[in-house]
C-alpha cells in the first residue's frame, strides 16, 4: 500500500478495494506465483553465492577435496601480503583512471559538437557509438592485430609522427596503455551519448539569462554547461571504475594478464585463482573484497549524487 503514496499515477478506485478483499487471498497467491521465478533464481544464483562465498573465503579448498578446510582469516592475511594483489589493484586503477580521463574529455568535446542541428547527426552518433556493444573477444583479436608491432594499422600514424611502434602487448610498460586505447575506443560513444542527453537537459533559459548578462561562449561553458553536467560526469566516472573492476575478456584474450602481471586486472586475477590455480578460498576472499569495493563505490555515489542534483 505504501507505494500508492509515492506513485500518484496509480489510480485505484476506493470502492474497488472492497471488491478486491474477497479476492485478496487469490491475489496474494498470484503475486507470489508471479515473483517466484525471479526470487528463486536470485536466491540460488545471487544471494546464495554471496553467503557461500563469504564462507569459502575463510577456507582452503581446491574443489577436488571432499570439503573445504577452515583456516580463519588466512586468505585475507595472504591478500595483504600478496604483491600481485596490490599490483592487480594498481593496474585496475591505472586502467580505470587513464581510460576515464581520455574518454571524458573526448566524449564531452564530441557531444558539444553533436549538440546542434547538423545533417547526418544520427549517422555520426551511430558510428561513434557502434563499438560499445561489440563482442569483447572478437574486438580483442581485432585490436591485437591493429597493435601488431610490425604490420599493425596503428604503426601507420606512429610512423608519420616519427615514433617507433612499441611492443604494445609484450612490453610491461605498454600493456595497460594498449588496453586504455581499446577501452577508450569502446567506451567513448557511450559517454558521448550520456553527455549529449545531459546537454539536452540543460534549460535553454539559463543560457539566455546569462547571455543577457553579457556572458561569452567560454563563460557560458565554464559557468553553466560544466556545473550542470557535473552529476553526469560523476556518474560516468563511477560506472567506468566499476566497469574497469570487471574487465575480463579484453585482458584474457589480448595479454592473459602478462607479461609479468603487468596487465592483470581484478576479475582476471579472481578467475585465475579459482579456475587455473584452484585456490578457491583465496578467490572467494578476493571476490568478497571486490564486492565490498563495489558496494562502497555505489553507496558513495548515491550519497554524493543526492547532494549534486541540480535539476
Amino acid at each position: 500500500m505504501g507505494s500508492q503514496i509515492r506513485l500518484p499515477n496509480q489510480s485505484w478506485v476506493p470502492g474497488l478495494n472492497i471488491l478486491r478483499l474477497t479476492h485478496s487471498r487469490r491475489e496474494r497467491l498470484t503475486f507470489l506465483a508471479l515473483i517466484a521465478p525471479n526470487f528463486i533464481l536470485f536466491g540460488i544464483f545471487t544471494f546464495w553465492p554471496l553467503i557461500y562465498n563469504f564462507y569459502l573465503s575463510f577456507t582452503k579448498w581446491n574443489m577436488i577435496a571432499p570439503t573445504p578446510t577452515l583456516i580463519g582469516l588466512d586468505n585475507y592475511a595472504t591478500m595483504i601480503a600478496d604483491p600481485i594483489f596490490w599490483k592487480v589493484l594498481g593496474n585496475t586503477l591505472y586502467l580505470a583512471t587513464g581510460s576515464i580521463a581520455i574518454r571524458l574529455v573526448l566524449a564531452l568535446a564530441l557531444a558539444l559538437v553533436l549538440n546542434q542541428k547538423l545533417a547526418g547527426r544520427d549517422i555520426y552518433r551511430a558510428i561513434i557509438f557502434s563499438p560499445t556493444f561489440t563482442t569483447g573477444a572478437a574486438v580483442a583479436l581485432v585490436w591485437t592485430w591493429i597493435l601488431h608491432k610490425d604490420l599493425g594499422l596503428l604503426r601507420l600514424p606512429l610512423n608519420l609522427l616519427g615514433i617507433v611502434s612499441p611492443n604494445w602487448l609484450t612490453d610491461i610498460n605498454w600493456t595497460i596503455p594498449a588496453l586504455i586505447i581499446v577501452t577508450v575506443w569502446r567506451g567513448l560513444g557511450y559517454d558521448m551519448v550520456i553527455f549529449l542527453a545531459g546537454l539536452q537537459g540543460i534549460p535553454a533559459e539559463l543560457y539566455e539569462a546569462a547571455r543577457v548578462d553579457g556572458a561569452g561562449r567560454w563563460s557560458l561553458f565554464r559557468h553553466i554547461t560544466l556545473p550542470m553536467l557535473s552529476p553526469i560526469t560523476f556518474f560516468l566516472i563511477v560506472t567506468s571504475i566499476i566497469g574497469a573492476l570487471q574487465v575480463f575478456d579484453l585482458v584474457a584474450v589480448m595479454t592473459g594478464g602478462g607479461p609479468m602481471n603487468s596487465s592483470k586486472v581484478y576479475v582476471y586475477y579472481v578467475y585465475e585463482n579459482a579456475f587455473k590455480f584452484f585456490k578457491v578460498g583465496y578467490a572467494a576472499a578476493l571476490s568478497m573484497v571486490l564486492f565490498l569495493i563495489t558496494l562502497a563505490i555505489t553507496i558513495f555515489q548515491t550519497r554524493l549524487s543526492r547532494r549534486w542534483v541540480h535539476y
Partner: peptide, 26 residues
Amino acid sequence: RDALFLVVLATMMIPGEMALVPNYLT
C-alpha cells in the same frame, strides 16, 4: 511489496563476478 521490491533492486549491487565459484559448484 515495496520492501520485496527493494530486495530485487539490492541484487544490482552484487557483482556477478563474485558468484563464479559458488555458481560453478551449484
